[in-house]
Design a protein around this nucleic acid. Structure first.
Length: 583
DNA sequence: GCCGTTTTCGGCCCGACTGTTTTCAGTCG
């Protein structure tokens, strides 16, 4: 569903435009009944293009040849060039001319795939969601062979409630619900293990549903107990080994009951990602083995698969952390013995982005400091907004100078945590900073952030960021892409250029761990790391409870392959203070 | 449409579940 995937990927490079075109062509080809493997080729190419760090548009603009990309042959490479140079693709135009535009949207309805959409169109003239609702309400869908009352009701329900297959929720909203379910399921007598799987276990910043695996024998009756849980509102499907339900919150949960002897194989399979699984299966195939959720099999032997480590070991691989399982080079790194030692929450020594009562926070400086100390942090940068940001009740100049004195006094009095003097200063439309140098010079940490003018052109937006980074007192770029999950798209920006500028200036980029921000994205962290730019994993806390954001921020950093040494705030406080010493 | 230690053609993951029909098609993960 090309139109409804806005949440999933950043648009920091032109690659996303290419990927959206490929996805749309896959949808349209599928609706036309094209060879399913041809459809898959377009989807695979879209995925590859999204994952690559190379800005393909930039490359073509420089007259350089395209590198070999997985799943992109001569034909799709020529279409990439066509999209980059003309902004469109002739095949896409031809397909759009033959398929009504609303039909692509119909693919987003749960229970509708290309075959059913095709029949609804041919036999009932249904071209969009509105017409689908009308046909269902008039009882016309049930009259088609192969359809019936239940399917008709399900489609109407899905369409009316806006349930679609691509809706995603912030990780931090879903994780506590999942942990609650795991606790309940683990209490069922006879259950040996219960684990979250899927994108939630891989700690993607958004998740579409909750996947849960349970190790138990068939006599335990897990499914029957599960669908009776208090939080379950609707049972969508249930069988002997699997059930899907909706929670009262509207979130879907898929539960699978697994034989404990093959729990490891099932956990690998259902944790995914799909591309990681395919890569593992290919490896197994080459070794003459067959890997599935039911185990790993040779011609004459069956391997032990009780744990994930058993499975990876049999494939001659070390265990791979779920956050890395995206087929972004983790298997090659594992084979070479070069998997990174990923950063952990306990590696963080400080937090460099925190608000207090002086701007839009709910707690005093001292309360935030005590909470940070309790969270095991050694230092904390107080970074309230300056007054140019009216909406966050920013500090006035005099108050900021008072705050500096107050921090000195608290540092003299408090033990166990060091407070740093900081500011979250606006990057104005022209790239200048909303605070004079004589004030900036008194601070330990200057975080710059864009809070207005999100819709500048790509070139103007990039120039704005680059000018800000060049400022001698600028130390960290906060929430670089300004996205809000499900609310605001990332700004259009040449992030490659920004990362290069940060590397040249010795500045850091922030990974803002507010649940609805999660900004930077994982692939950007990986890119920044490759350019030698440190990432600051920050809570952007508004109150004392918000330090828990750091858990999810670290997860995103791990998905970006970051090690402890790649994260700015794993360093001791003296290293942070020295950021401004080179000015 | 891509790919290749089974290479220029033939395979591309495949099983669970549902609703419908009565042996299977379609969807989903």
């Amino acid at each position: 569903m090309a139109q409804l995937r806005g949440v999933l990927y950043p648009k920091y490079s032109g690659n996303d435009v290419i990927a959206v075109h490929f996805d749309e062509m896959a949808d349209l080809l599928e609706l036309q009944g094209a060879n399913p493997f041809r459809v898959r080729a377009y989807r695979n190419a879209a995925s590859t293009v999204r994952k690559t760090n190379i800005d393909l548009g930039q490359l073509i603009a420089c007259g350089k040849p395209l590198p070999k990309l997985q799943g992109v042959g001569d034909d799709l490479a020529s279409k990439i060039r066509e999209i980059v140079t003309t902004g469109d693709c002739a095949l896409r135009q031809r397909l759009r001319a033959t398929v009504p535009s609303g039909m692509v949207e119909l693919l987003s309805i749960a229970g509708l795939g290309p075959k059913r959409v095709g029949r609804l169109y041919q036999e009932l003239g249904v071209e969009n969601i509105q017409q689908l609702c009308q046909a269902a309400q008039q009882g016309r869908i049930r009259q088609l062979t192969g359809f019936g009352r239940k399917i008709e009701a399900q489609l109407l329900n899905s369409a009316l409630r806006g349930l679609n297959k691509h809706r995603r929720f912030p990780l931090a909203d879903v994780a506590p619900l999942a942990q609650g379910l795991i606790r309940e399921i683990a209490r069922i007598p006879g259950v040996e293990q219960a684990t979250v799987a899927g994108s939630l276990r891989r700690m993607r910043d958004t998740v579409g549903d909750i996947d849960i695996l349970v190790a138990a024998g068939p006599e335990v009756g897990v499914i029957a107990r599960f669908i009776q849980l208090e939080t379950v509102s609707t049972v969508l499907t249930k069988g002997h080994t699997r059930a899907s339900v909706l929670l009262r919150s509207g979130l879907q949960v898929d539960l699978r009951v697994i034989n404990p002897d093959v729990y490891g194989a099932a956990l690998v399979y259902f944790t995914g990602s799909k591309l990681h699984n395919i890569a593992l299966r290919k490896m197994a195939h080459k070794a003459g083995l067959k890997l599935s959720e039911y185990g790993l099999f040779g011609a004459h032997e069956t391997f032990t698969c009780r744990s994930e480590a058993d499975v990876y070991r049999a494939l001659k691989l070390p265990w791979i952390a779920p956050e890395l399982r995206e087929d972004r080079g983790e298997i090659q790194a594992a084979l070479a013995g070069q998997l990174p030692r990923l950063v952990e929450l306990g590696d963080l020594k400080g937090d460099l982005h925190v608000h207090t009562l002086d701007s839009d926070g709910d707690n005093s400086i001292e309360e935030m400091a005590l909470a940070a100390r309790k969270s095991g942090l050694e230092y904390l940068a107080i970074t309230d907004h300056f007054h140019s940001l009216q909406m966050a009740h920013g500090l006035i100049r005099e108050r900021l100078l008072q705050q500096i004195d107050q921090i000195d006094a608290l540092n003299a009095r408090m033990g166990g945590v060091t407070l740093l003097k900081g500011i979250e200063v606006d990057i104005l439309e022209d790239g200048s900073l909303g605070l004079p140098d004589d004030v900036l010079s008194r601070l330990d940490v200057v975080i710059g952030a864009v809070h207005t003018h999100f819709n500048l052109s790509r070139s103007k937006q990039t120039a704005r960021y680059l000018k800000a980074i060049e400022h001698p007192y600028f130390s960290i770029l906060a929430h670089p892409l300004c996205r809000l999950i499900n609310k605001r798209e990332p700004v259009d920006l040449d992030l490659d250029a920004v990362i290069r500028a940060a590397a040249a200036r010795g500045c850091s980029l922030e990974l803002n761990a507010q649940p609805e921000r999660m900004d930077l994205f994982d692939i950007h962290c990986q890119h920044a790391k490759s350019e030698g730019v440190l990432i600051s994993v920050s809570s952007d806390a508004r109150d004392v409870a918000d330090f828990s954001n750091l858990y999810f921020g670290v997860a995103q950093a791990r998905r970006g392959w970051l090690r402890g040494q790649d994260v700015l705030n794993t360093r001791p406080v003296c290293a942070i203070k020295s950021l401004q010493c080179g000015v």
